[in-house]
Design a protein around this nucleic acid. Structure first.
Lengths: 139, 139
DNA sequence: ATTACTGCAAAGCATTTGCAGACTG
DNA sequence: CAGTCTGCAAATGCTTTGCAGTAAT
């Protein structure tokens, strides 16, 4: 894995110029254990004393997703995408229907599951799973 | 189930006025075996010789979702929501990563699965599952 | 020096909202 | 006839794009 050094040992994607803004975005994502929206990332960068225009944040995120360093998701059909640092760990989230808290699920229902399709052949590459309900504070 | 007659025998939600536009929207959804976007629905209504302004379609969909007659989903993190008539059948979709074809999956990985959470209690209400890969025409 | 990246402004797209007139029960 | 729903227009919120100046290798 990682034989071609697509991602360098320090976690920086190969062939990508280092700039203050890019380092800020990646640092914010590395320091978070929850997925963040572009706006969240923008705010945290400002709070850290740095700066990066919102459109720049979007461009950086798009690049990092393409490089495989960052994962983009839409949680609970929200209109806002969230991004997280790719730690190459397989995981899923449970989302509280009242407070939107995100809880990491430790096991995966797809582990021993063979999907069955109606008529069609289909080669499975991956899956998204999202559980919803109420967290202990909300119910 | 349906003891309180929240949904009438003809499939119309109780206490909801019948209008030309609402009947058109629901008819389009009933006649489709795939989830449709608001725009799809709008186009199909026009094609049928009726009409309903796009914002009206959105308002009707929102109402029908609230009444439990329609299900809203965001497939493959697309920015566009899709809607389907609620046939009260539990199912999941597989989506082709190239042509976006939607294929219905016949079994559900959550059937015999007990989720485990890190630290937190969580009462599960439901789940979304989405499989992605390539359909037989695309690979 | 050359090429790529960012600030900034403005556009884009799906969806929502406000209002006055039209329609349903 | 009272109250709700719709057409229409305009606003919204997230995200993308174009361009000219700035910075990285």
């Amino acid at each position: 894995m990682n034989r071609l050094k697509k991602i360098k040992d320090d976690g920086w994607p190969a062939g990508v110029k280092k700039t203050k803004q890019r380092e800020s975005v990646l640092a914010v994502l590395k320091n978070s254990d929850k997925p963040l929206s572009a706006m969240d990332i923008y705010s945290k960068i400002e709070k850290n004393g740095s700066s990066a225009w919102l459109s720049t944040v979007y461009r950086i995120l798009e690049l990092m997703v393409k490089k495989g360093v960052v994962i983009k998701t839409n949680i609970m059909n929200s209109e806002m995408a969230v991004y997280e640092f790719n730690r190459f760990k397989h995981k899923h989230y449970a989302v509280c229907m009242r407070c939107n808290k995100i809880i990491i699920m430790d096991n995966c229902p797809m582990d021993k599951f063979i999907p069955q399709f109606k008529d069609e052949e289909f080669s499975v590459i991956g899956h998204n799973i999202e559980i919803f309900g109420f967290c202990k504070d909300c119910k």
